[in-house]
Simulated scan of single mutants.
Amino acid sequence: MQRPKTTPNAVIPAQERYQALFEAIDAGLCIIEMMFEGERAVDYRFVEVNPQFESQTGLVDVVGRTASELVPDLERFWFDTYGRVALTGEPARFDHGSEPMGRWFDVHAFPVGDGTPRMVAILFNDVSARRSRRRRARSASTRRSRRATASAPGTGTFPTTGSRQTSASHGCTAFRQSLAGRARRSNCSSARSTPTTSPARARR
């Protein structure tokens, strides 16, 4: 079986294949260059972004600019996490939110290149809407569970210990008073029913 011959014109250059893949991905994708002071990551610069980056982040015209310039109050978490990926060469996968950006992201970050400069590729999706839907669903489920518990038989309000003790005390007092009354009535009946012996009969 002969293999078809591949002519040079049929071979897609690697750069073109990379660029086609870069632009076709539905998720946001960017390559950043980490900036360090010693071993501490202090910022990062955007080197390249795909077309979906803007819709996923809300950031525009980012290439060549730093994260601190684009989002001045960006949390320290992002610098530390991407800096660790660049230093250790270990990829990171996580979900995390950014309050200044008002979004929550599902992120996969991994090192690229030979480490000079320290570059990190970030593949991510804005999952804010999905997360909000899940939170609303959980809240609705919790409310339904509480309503079901409140309406279930035997879940009414029970008297407190103090009220039970008070009721029991009153009950015991009433019971004792009732017994005393019965005892008095019994004594009176006995006195009425006992025959009276006359003195004359007694002398006999």
Rank of each mutant, 00 (worst) to 15 (best):
Q2L: 15
K5Q: 11
T6W: 02
T6D: 03
T7M: 04
P8Q: 05
N9R: 14
A10P: 01
I12A: 13
E16V: 08
R17E: 09
Y18S: 15
L21Y: 06
E23H: 11
I25P: 11
G28M: 10
E33Q: 15
M35H: 13
M35W: 02
M35E: 14
F36C: 12
E37T: 15
Y44S: 04
N50L: 01
Q52C: 10
Q52K: 15
F53A: 03
F53S: 00
E54R: 14
E54W: 04
S55V: 00
S55Y: 02
T57Q: 13
V60K: 12
V63L: 06
T66D: 11
A67L: 11
A67S: 11
L74G: 06
E75N: 11
E75C: 09
F77G: 14
D80H: 14
T81W: 00
T81R: 12
Y82G: 08
A86S: 13
A86T: 06
T88R: 12
A92H: 07
H96L: 03
E99H: 08
P100F: 03
W104L: 13
V107H: 05
H108R: 06
D114A: 13
G115Q: 05
T116R: 09
P117Q: 03
V120R: 06
V120E: 08
R131L: 06
S132K: 12
R134C: 07
R134N: 13
R134D: 12
R138W: 03
S141R: 11
S141W: 02
S141N: 09
T142S: 14
A148S: 13
S151I: 10
A152T: 06
G154E: 07
G156M: 04
G156C: 08
T157V: 14
T160G: 15
T161P: 02
G162R: 15
S163E: 03
R164P: 07
S167D: 05
S167W: 01
G171D: 06
C172F: 05
A174L: 14
F175A: 15
R176C: 09
R176A: 14
A180S: 13
R182P: 06
R184F: 04
R184I: 05
S186Q: 11
N187Y: 01
R192C: 14
P195M: 00
T197A: 09
A200M: 05
A200Y: 01
